[in-house]
Design a protein around this nucleic acid. Structure first.
Lengths: 217, 217
DNA sequence: TGATGCCATCTTGCATGCAAGCTGACATAC
DNA sequence: GTATGTCAGCTTGCATGCAAGATGGCATCA
């Protein structure tokens, strides 16, 4: 039941049914979900650990808003973790490496196609799959979990930047460079390409967010 | 009160008063801490998020044990996060960078002195301060939090390896190389030196743990 | 003697009563 | 008109009753 509350609240936050800055009482949430306060309270604690809400003692729960500063922090974590993941992938034995590069290449081709067709949602999903594969295939549960948490936190921001993004071309080219480095087993290059790719994306997207005056997402 | 329970339990786990594999009921813990089940339950949830315990539904809480495989994961996270932190430090403005390098140098000198005097605990504490400074001064709260969690998880393992460690010399030299790269503003080199330093330490310590048959720490 | 089924016991999960704390508004005094 | 003090209402934090689930032992049967 606490899992149910956790999932429902998280989904509600992710698709902005509970917008950032929204203020609700646990009582009210419990009523809406048809359960008692206890499981809601525990779910809220977990969401606080995830950085999605803040519980203000005796003043209800507050849906967290992200400032551009938070996005900078988030990009640093991504650069760090994905960079190391790319290194690990490049150090994989040949067979496993070939499998991973094939999967990454498939997702990059899906991006290229979606980009040419102007299908932004499909492009975003393929991009997300590429980066998820990159981390998950490194076989480090802790790194996967960190990225999952970070992705949840920045989900709304990604939905916004996806629409505001100018050109999609460079990402595909950069993905191909990453794949090539992994394929050839060059860990340093793989790390560097992921590093540069994510920082370029950050430097492209953060100014857009800031120029739109999105002080809290 | 939940914070009190959380702190008490965490401390108990860290200094092995609750050894890994230990199995207790929340009721019992509550009794021992002189409070009701509710705050203990919430504290246990937070500890589970931290990866220190697992709550087995209706079968009590289990203090988590670390396998060498976990240590490999943990080192990957450290390599990733500390590497990026070093990059960030190297990109700091001159004044702040000078301040950080001075602090890092102080702690490294404390290590060198403790190493010469054979004072292992002092050496370990100075080493921990160096790495904590490295991350905290990068000014990224999320990265700091990740490292804090990882450090809690691996605290017992560190206490063991500290005693089993052969030579302390190379760490000091490597720390100096890291400091020099940060001082000169060379982000790539700073990242690389941290990267190599942590991987060398991992390759030195993991075999020791495994040779001692420490399947679970 | 071994295996299987049942039951007692223990443990958590949820609901709710109660108390304490915070906020905001209203009234009063200056 | 402004500022301050007080109070009512709302919200969470903790304790505990109750129920459901899991386990281990014991008894019974083959």
């Amino acid at each position: 039941m606490v899992d149910e509350a956790y999932a429902a609240l998280k989904q509600g936050i992710l698709d902005s049914r509970f917008p950032p800055g929204f203020h609700a009482s646990e009582q009210e949430i419990a009523l809406r979900l048809g359960m008692s306060r206890t499981p809601v309270h525990e779910a809220v604690i977990r969401l606080q650990e995830d950085g999605l809400v803040r519980v203000l003692s005796r003043r209800g729960v507050l849906i967290c808003a992200l400032a551009p500063e938070d996005m900078r922090e988030i990009y640093d974590v991504i650069v760090a973790v994905e960079g190391r993941a790319a290194e690990l992938l490049a150090a994989l034995p040949d067979a496993a490496r070939a499998e991973v590069t094939a999967e990454l290449a498939r997702e990059t081709e899906a991006m290229a196609q979606a980009g040419q067709g102007g299908d932004l949602p499909a492009w975003g999903q393929a991009d997300a799959r590429f980066h998820r594969t990159l981390v998950e295939r490194a076989g480090n549960g802790r790194m996967t979990r960190i990225i999952q948490t970070i992705n949840d936190q920045s989900h709304r921001a990604r939905m916004i930047t996806l629409k505001l993004r100018r050109e999609l071309g460079s990402s595909v080219a950069e993905h191909r460079a990453i794949i090539e480095a992994i394929r050839s087993g060059d860990a340093k290059a793989a790390q560097a390409h992921v590093h540069d790719h994510r920082l370029r994306a950050r430097d492209e997207l953060l100014p857009i967010l800031e120029s739109f005056g999105l002080r809290h997402l």
